[in-house]
Design a protein around this nucleic acid. Structure first.
Length: 433
RNA sequence: GGCCCUAUCGUCUAAUGGUUAGGACAGUUCCCUCUCACGGAACAAAUCGGGGUUCGAAUCCCCGUAGGGUCACCA
């Protein structure tokens, strides 16, 4: 209680940071922040073969992008702490708690170090599932180092967590069966146990652990698909945890206030894109037009008319969709108007369309230049449309202005393209019959 | 297979012994509406099965069943 909370996010840089890893980072951060503590970041790169700098970079990029803070400096790297581990291995061997065994398969000439298993029954408290008990006898004398100077995961983790003052180990449920052997090592070393919390797995639709074979699983993929950090954070937080009320949309700050280990679920949760899309749209809609524009520009790498933002905002669920809509709603180019579309595929008579288009043209001509806004144009045109039939008047008008079957309303488009262009397009459409 | 974990609508979940089992996403229908979208309303949809304990069980216990995780000189 009095001890400051220190959590850790310890990815191994052997692949792109996947969505489950991102959630682990999130939970560790939320818990630490909620308790006024901190989260450290540590790369577990004792596997030299599989660890790659580009994966470290991806992990760092994603964590920054998501806006999950961690304590820095330093960012730890196990590969830089080899001498620390060596000392402990030697100590264990000297104390008879570990021993050099058979020759290494991977390092000819060197001997692996095995932990002398006391074959005890380990029970540990887990914040998520109360008590978990294992009989460690079936673990045997497991290997803790490839050789006296090449530590393996379990050893390194235990030493690091101790040295870095980690108080709470919050990790995926797949580690639950690793916990007893880590406790065995930690007890041999004379370290105190941290608190454990094993978070349920994120599942694929088939209920198996979400993995590469299920398609897009890396956070980077979702970023590329036009999801924004706020949505991913929100969605991930609610996968396997829930504050209890009926509120669904949360900011990171709100999550920090609400987060407790007790409310983490026991069962796995299926990762579904539909709800993520909904969260994305919700958070996108909450952005100011200016902020939205900035993000969209950054994402699409293109310039666009800022007045398009409100139109796109209510329609696009992702920045990718928004990018497509920018192109679609760029009414500055030539607008084609096929007669068939102008007549709503035969639902409107050609002579009516032509008549209404000309009438509307006259009305719009009468709208003062300085009043050429969507609201004013609507006020001017509306009475005529009511009188003649809204569909018959508005459909041809909208198609004349947009050239499309689906689009924002004609008044908005008219205001967007300006009076001259509006009149020109109406004239062109009227002549097309 | 051994060990461990889990089990509420299709999905994410609420309920901490007493509710007509609530909300959200997706679905369907309707309203708004010239289209798309937004917005609003409604419908449909669940406590894995069986035994206990209890006046009362989604909730506690046991047994099944099902699913998952893990059993490396990976992490």
């Amino acid at each position: 209680m009095s001890q400051p909370v220190i959590t850790r996010f310890p990815p191994s840089p052997t692949g792109l940071l996947h969505i489950g890893g991102a959630r682990t980072a999130l939970f560790n951060y939320l818990f630490a922040a909620h308790n006024g503590g901190k989260m450290i970041l540590r790369f577990e790169d004792t596997d030299k073969e599989r660890s790659k700098p580009e994966f470290e970079q991806d992990i760092l990029d994603v964590v920054h992008w998501l806006g999950i803070p961690y304590e820095t400096p330093p960012v730890y790297r196990q590969s830089e702490r080899l001498s620390v581990y060596q000392g402990h291995v030697a100590r264990l061997v000297d104390a008879g708690m570990a021993y050099e065994a058979e020759e290494s398969e991977n390092n000819p000439g060197k001997k692996v170090v095995r932990f002398k298993n006391p074959n005890s029954v380990i029970t540990f408290a887990d914040a998520v599932r109360e008590q978990v008990t294992f009989d460690t006898t079936d673990l045997g004398d497991f290997v803790i180092a490839r050789s006296i100077d090449e530590p393996l995961y379990h050893l390194a983790v235990v030493i690091d967590d101790h040295d870095m003052g980690v108080t709470h180990v919050i990790r995926g449920e797949e580690h639950i069966s690793n916990t007893p052997r880590q406790i065995l090592i930690l007890e041999a070393l004379g370290f105190a146990r941290p608190e454990y919390a094993h978070v349920p797995l994120i599942l694929a639709p088939d209920k198996s652990k979400l993995s590469k074979r299920h398609g897009a699983v890396s956070a980077t993929d979702y970023r590329a698909q036009g999801f924004i950090p706020e949505a991913i954070i929100n969605y991930l937080a609610l996968l396997g945890w829930n504050p209890g009320g009926e509120q669904e949309v949360f900011t990171l700050e709100e999550l920090v206030k609400l987060f407790t280990l007790e409310r983490i679920h026991k069962a796995g949760a299926v990762f579904g894109t539909e709800k993520l899309l909904w969260f994305n749209h919700e958070h996108l809609k909450r952005l100011s037009d200016q902020e939205y524009g900035a993000r969209l520009k950054d994402f699409s790498k293109s310039e666009f008319d800022a007045r398009l933002v409100p139109l796109i905002k209510e329609r696009a669920q992702t920045l990718t969709e928004a990018t497509d809509l920018i192109k679609e709603y760029d009414f500055t180019g030539d607008v084609s108007c096929e007669p068939a579309l102008l007549l709503n595929k035969g639902k409107i008579a050609a002579e009516d369309a032509s008549k209404h288009l000309q009438a509307v043209q006259a009305i719009i001509l009468g709208v003062a230049d300085e009043d050429f806004t969507a609201a004013h144009i609507k006020d001017a045109v509306w009475p005529y449309a009511e009188q003649e039939g809204r569909g018959a008047v508005l459909w041809p008008l909208r198609v004349a202005l947009s050239g499309r079957e689906k689009s924002p309303d004609p008044f908005t488009i008219a205001a967007l393209v300006g009076k001259d262009e509006t009149l020109k397009r109406i004239a062109r459409a009227a002549e097309s019959f």
